[in-house]
Write a protein that binds this DNA or RNA. Structure first.
Lengths: 151, 151
DNA sequence: GCCTTAATTGATAATGGTTATCATTTTCAA
DNA sequence: TTGAAAATGATAACCATTATCAATTAAGGC
């Protein structure tokens, strides 16, 4: 019997869909933001006061490795996570990060062209390096408008 | 009087080209690897035993903000740095990162198409969001060949 | 050159996100 | 039901990075 895609993904990779994992997954599915491990832990506590921070970290790491979630680093010292196929998110998007204030802007311009190119590249790289690619990330780094004015 | 590009970049941004900065820059220019702050510090110590780790961090941050260097996070807990225009490096390249062992593969396939697309995107985003873009990053995340076999 | 002021530096301590450890609990299959 | 393996959670430890602050250095005006 096949379940929802994330369950299949877990099972196929040889892992169990446990309560804590389901909980974290549920939170990821409900938001359209980039949540940190701490963010997720706090939200998880509200639904299950016995969950541990370590488990949240472990779960996020697992999700990332099997392609359920994506891990981001925006340079502010803590990692952020997003569900890979988030129904609430604009289908596919990327990020612009301010090197000063670490603010993040999502954008989704030129996605069609970009997706094509990425798909092509991904295919070639997978083959060439025998690499199982889970996801890709594109970041533009620079200085945002308000930080420039502050000079 | 204009000096080399990095000096101009510093001056134009209102900063001085000091000894520690010149030292860090020299090390970045001599390598084709992704060095961590610690790596750079150790190398710097050999040439100037009085340099401080804090200064290395500060210098790298400064270089990143004014576009002399690029900062990378490959998920192993420490940031890496590369010179923006490194004569030793393959002109333009990107990275594939293993989510398990954190190994990094540089690649430079499809660079022509990619550069075109990025340039176009960059232009549009800069204008739309009044964002001064210093550099972009493309990462493919997945599981490398040897980590897959280890399953 | 000398002086003034601001920029820069470096030693140290503190911060804080993440991971290691390990005993306990849960899950799945026999 | 039962036993082995997987998963969990509390705690301690780790370690990259940043804050602090007194000391040093650089640049421009005189």
């Amino acid at each position: 019997m096949r379940g929802p895609w994330w369950q299949d993904r877990l099972n196929d990779a040889g892992f169990r869909l446990t309560n804590p994992r389901e909980l974290v997954l549920g939170i990821l599915r409900e938001t359209d933001k980039h949540l940190s491990a701490e963010d997720l832990y706090v939200k998880a506590l509200q639904k299950n006061p016995s969950i541990g921070l370590t488990t949240v970290y472990r779960t996020l790491d697992l999700f990332t490795q099997i392609g359920i979630a994506q891990k981001f680093d925006f340079g502010d010292g803590k990692a952020r996570y997003e569900l890979a196929n988030n129904p609430l998110k604009k289908a596919h998007h990327h990020h612009m990060v301010c090197l000063k204030c670490k603010s993040i802007i999502d954008y989704s311009d030129f996605m069609k062209e970009e997706l094509e190119l990425m798909k092509k590249t991904e295919k070639a790289l997978s083959k060439k390096h025998k690499f199982k690619i889970m996801y890709h990330i594109i970041h533009f780094y620079g200085i945002c408008n308000s930080c420039r004015e502050g000079d």
